[in-house]
Design a protein around this nucleic acid. Structure first.
Length: 151
DNA sequence: GCCAACGTTGGC
DNA sequence: GCCAACGTTGGC
């Protein structure tokens, strides 16, 4: 079972949205490195739900991956904000996964607080200039972040 | 295959 | 709203 960190702008899709709906689809990823990580996802994996482009950015809760990766057909829809004009039925490089709500942290655990934790040096999120929106989390990193965010 | 120009991300 | 950093595009 693997751990992940997924970024979302809460204006578009937040931990509260996922809690209300209890399940959702993680789609719209249009970056190859992030897509490659999504291809490694398996049902039962857990992820930290990170709120980005908001004040303050940070960890909002936990979700679970509930499906294998499958083709992200939103890329084919001209009316979808994540439409990819280059994608076609024959060439659909993007993937989506189904997700379920697990937990909302008592309060947002901010990026500043994350930076203050020891043991997260290798996490892509905290590396200078990183814009990766889907990244793996090592078990040790997971434990560190979970313990801090739940307290 | 190089690399300049452009577009996007995302913290600030 | 700014802009640094990065990814992508496309001319050569």
């Amino acid at each position: 079972m693997a751990y992940w960190l997924l970024k979302s702008e809460p204006d578009a899709f937040s931990i509260d949205d996922l809690q209300r709906l209890q399940q959702g689809v993680w789609d719209g990823v249009r970056n190859y490195q992030a897509r490659n990580f999504m291809r490694d996802m398996q049902p039962g994996d857990s992820f930290l739900f990170y709120h980005s482009s908001c004040q303050p950015p940070g960890l909002a809760g936990i979700g679970r991956i509930t499906s294998a990766p499958y083709p992200d057909r939103t890329a084919l829809d001209p009316n979808n904000p994540y439409h990819d004009a280059r994608a076609s039925e024959d060439r659909l490089p993007w993937v989506a996964v189904d997700v379920a709500f697990e937990e909302k942290f008592p309060r947002l655990f901010s990026l500043d607080q994350l930076r203050a934790l020891a043991g997260l040096e290798g996490l892509a999120l905290l590396q200078r200039g990183s814009r990766l929106s889907v990244m793996p989390v090592e078990p040790e990193q997971w434990q560190i972040m979970l313990a801090a965010a739940r307290s």
